[in-house]
Write a protein that binds this DNA or RNA. Structure first.
Ligand SMILES: [Zn+2]
Length: 137
DNA sequence: AGCCTTTGACCAGCG
DNA sequence: TCGCTGGTCAAAGGC
């Protein structure tokens, strides 16, 4: 059943690029929550919802790269997150690609309008941290 | 029921 | 000419 069907592979020249597009979101910082003896990474909501659609380790920079896509396909906005397999939070780089076409980020969708710190618990260490953290979903 | 997440494999271009 | 990498898609399962 591996019929990859259509998709296949798209190609894109560039490999390494450094640029943080216009929508300069708030200071992105990874929060290292220490619960007992497990470290969990929390991704700060930037005000938009993203769907993770891929993860790979880039040898060129020796960093992990996660691919996020805006839920609104018509939006075309994409988000890429790069972080160290052993030291996330230490060198975490978020790259925004594209622009949103549906309203603006006023309040975090996941938040609902309060001032709570809505954070998506994406398992950035799922595999790289080897079960050090238990998946809570 | 719906929605989200994760993994593997594939494709193409470049040096 | 070859090998390699990066990037994306699909499917399945779980809550
Ligand atoms: Zn959007």
């Amino acid at each position: 059943m591996n019929n990859r069907g259509a998709g296949g592979g798209r190609d894109q020249g560039d490999v390494d690029e450094e640029q943080t597009p216009p929508p300069a979101p708030p200071p992105e910082t990874v929060s290292t929550v220490v619960g007992g003896d497990s470290v969990q990474l929390v991704m700060p909501e930037d005000g938009y919802e993203w769907k993770k659609y891929g993860q790979k380790f880039i040898k060129n920079i020796q960093k992990n790269r996660s691919y996020f896509r805006c839920r609104d396909q018509r939006c075309g906005a994409k988000k890429k997150v790069e972080w160290h397999p052993h030291d996330p939070g230490l060198n975490l780089r978020i790259v925004y690609d594209g622009a949103h076409h549906h309203g603006s980020p006023s309040s975090a969708a996941g938040e609902g309008g309060g001032a709570a710190a809505a954070a998506n618990q994406y398992d950035l260490s799922t595999q790289y941290f080897g079960g050090a953290g238990a998946r809570l979903q």
